[in-house]
Amino acid sequence: MTRIHKFKTLTAALALTVLAPLAAQAQAFPDKPITFVVPFAAGTATDQIARALGNQVAAESKQSVVIDNKAGASGFIASQYVAKANPDGYTVLITTNTTHAANEHLYKKLPYDPVKDFAPVTGLGKGGQIMVVNPSFPAKSVMEFIAAAKKEPGKYSFGSGSSSSRMAGELLQQMADIKLLHVPYKSNTLAVTDLLGGQIHMMITDTATGLPQVKGGKLRALGMSSAARSPLAPDVPTIAEAGVKGYEMGYWFAAYAPAKTPPAVIKRLNELLVKAARSEEARNAFYAPTGTEVFTTTPEEMASFQAAETQKWGRIVKGAGIEAE
């Protein structure tokens, strides 16, 4: 046996020695409970999708899934927590465009890197938002609201508890040429509470949070932020067709693991989450009731989608003239 041949044989043996434990780890994954970390409060759309998918992943993997809500700071707390977690696949961030496309344009410094600190697993869903006001507000349509705002610039407020919600309001101001007072919240559910109480005048929130209040007669719907009407609220026009031509603003959900999570583990997580998202149980528990579109991807497709979305959100933030905090 030549020296070169011996070297190649030794190299191959060493590679097998290193890779064997990783392969065994991936094959056994998961063999203990998985934690889904959610950057927003219980009851939000992100929390709802995490719980719906968690139930299905638990059923498929025969391991429990724990939902850990780490709300606040625009998703900083949860994102930083997962970024620093052990990269073994047992800590997964169930998040939105807030943490992984918008925040880097809204804040001068992030305590996490949306790209370098994470391994994309899959997309989970896409959805539109609903523009709602307190029933006591005189406006019965988008254009009536715009007319009121133009008559008294800066008098009326809009709340937001996510970047999607905030950007929807900022984009409306930009395209309708109105001036509103922005009131930030830790979550959309908290903003809705103040909207119900009359502390703020309007918000554009995810349908999972806003539509139940509309159907319960507690809020009035003026328009949908999506390109098409929602099948859950067919009588509510889109903001674009109501008079703000070209207006469109949606949101998306995705799953991320810490960077350096073994590819085989990422692959298994992808399989579990994609199957969960496409299940009839998840459709009935979350997707159908909230009007959310199932959106699943490979890890590579999610990375490309995130990059494109980050550029798009950057353009919106710049167009709205928002200064990074």
Rank of each mutant, 00 (worst) to 15 (best):
M302E: 15
L14I: 15
K116G: 06
N103K: 05
M302Y: 11
Q56I: 04
A259L: 09
G291R: 07
G154C: 08
A233P: 02
T46F: 10
G319K: 05
L53I: 07
T290P: 00
A12Q: 10
A228W: 01
A307M: 11
P212G: 09
Y81A: 15
S304N: 14
F76Y: 06
L10A: 15
M1Y: 13
V244F: 08
G89R: 00
Y107H: 13
P39T: 01
G210S: 09
E241N: 06
T205P: 00
K155V: 00
K84G: 12
L269M: 10
K108F: 09
E309L: 03
T91C: 15
T209L: 08
A52L: 01
T296M: 01
T98V: 10
N134A: 14
A208E: 05
F286W: 02
E104T: 13
G250H: 07
A276M: 01
T98N: 09
A277L: 11
P33H: 03
A221K: 01
Y256V: 02
A285F: 00
A191K: 11
K84R: 15
L172K: 07
S225L: 00
R278G: 00
A101L: 07
S163I: 10
A102M: 09
F29Q: 05
V294M: 10
K109I: 07
Q174V: 09
L110W: 03
K32G: 15
I178H: 05
D31I: 03
Y247W: 04
M203F: 11
S141R: 14
A102T: 15
T209K: 00
G321Y: 01
G210P: 01
